[in-house]
């Protein structure tokens, strides 16, 4: 009796050791390769419905709100939106002219031609993930052509990038996640910098700027396009604190994200316009 019990126990322990080894292998494989995409997809068949169920209270709430919105307020909103639309259209006309001019100038220089970015709107699946990761779930996945590393914006600025894709949803890591870094530059003078997430939803750290760097309070950082992940020129953050400590090699700078990371319900997924290379353009002009 006793021997059987000890045998059962040791086999249980063996199973635990095996599973721990398997977990470590899975972690390494998931971090370094994409072999486990199939496993993730299979588990997402269970996980995605769970997320959708958890987000229903919020959706019912919105539905009720829509139901009881008065006609008056809808009309007001409509008028306001129409005005906004007119203004934006007017600006767009100027943009189109500028874009054409820019393209022809670039062609004259035989430089890489910039192709406009494509966007897709996605809605957040309203679930609260574990508070120590700054991640969001959006309702677009592989079936909409979403890929890992895709930049995510809101109307104000850069929010983050897609880090996991599933068939119908994907996870977005925000720029404030402690493991996220964003290549940026100061809009005013093109000074390059990198912003790091701090785990605090309204704080970014700007590192590796020396004491003589030309940076001021209120400067806006935009994406620099370095690294190829984020298209250049989208606003990232605004500098709100610069500490000059002579005993440190670099300035201690904090910035506030421009995007409304905690309030945006709709986000934009961007496909970067694939810019033609210098040699392609030379071939074209021949």
């Amino acid at each position: 009796m006793a021997t059987r019990d000890t045998r059962a126990r040791s086999s249980d322990f063996l199973r635990l050791v095996l599973l721990i080894c398997l977990s470590v292998v899975v972690m390494l494989a998931d971090r370094r390769t994409d072999y486990l995409q199939g496993v993730r997809f299979t588990l997402a068949m269970v996980a995605t419905p769970l997320q959708l169920i958890a987000s229903t209270p919020d959706r019912i709430g919105t539905w009720f709100q829509d139901l009881f919105t008065s006609e008056e307020s809808v009309n007001q909103a409509n008028t306001r939106l129409r005005g906004e639309n007119m203004k934006l259209r007017a600006r767009l006309q100027r943009m189109q002219a500028l874009e054409a001019e820019n393209a022809s100038l670039r062609r004259l220089l035989a430089a890489a031609e910039k192709v406009p970015d494509q966007v897709l709107m996605a809605e957040l699946v309203d679930v609260s993930l574990d508070p120590y990761t700054h991640k969001l779930i959006v309702n677009r996945g592989v079936t909409d052509g979403i890929y890992v590393g895709q930049p995510v914006l809101d109307p104000q600025g850069v929010m983050g990038q897609v880090t996991e894709t599933m068939p119908f949803t994907s996870a977005v890591t925000l720029i404030t996640d402690p493991s996220h870094a964003t290549p940026a530059q100061v809009e005013r003078n093109g000074l390059r910098a990198i912003t790091f997430g701090t785990g605090n939803p309204d704080k970014l750290k700007v590192s590796y700027l020396t004491h003589n760097a030309d940076i001021k309070l209120g400067d806006v950082l935009v994406t620099s396009g370095m690294g190829g992940r984020f298209p250049a020129g989208y606003p990232v953050a605004q500098i709100n604190e610069i500490i000059r400590d002579a005993s440190e090699a670099f300035l201690r700078i904090t910035a506030t994200p421009v995007a409304r990371l905690e309030r945006s319900k709709q986000v934009l997924l961007v496909w970067q316009g694939i810019s033609k290379t210098f040699s392609d353009n030379l071939k074209d002009s021949e």
Binding site: M27, A44, A47, T133
Partner: peptide, 21 residues
């Protein structure tokens, strides 16, 4: 645990190891 990793969009295997233990 593996399912927790997928719903939380974590690295696969972290919660799996914890929950197995």
């Amino acid at each position: 645990g593996l399912l927790v990793d997928v719903t939380n969009a974590n690295l696969l295997g972290v919660h799996a190891l914890g929950m197995a233990t």
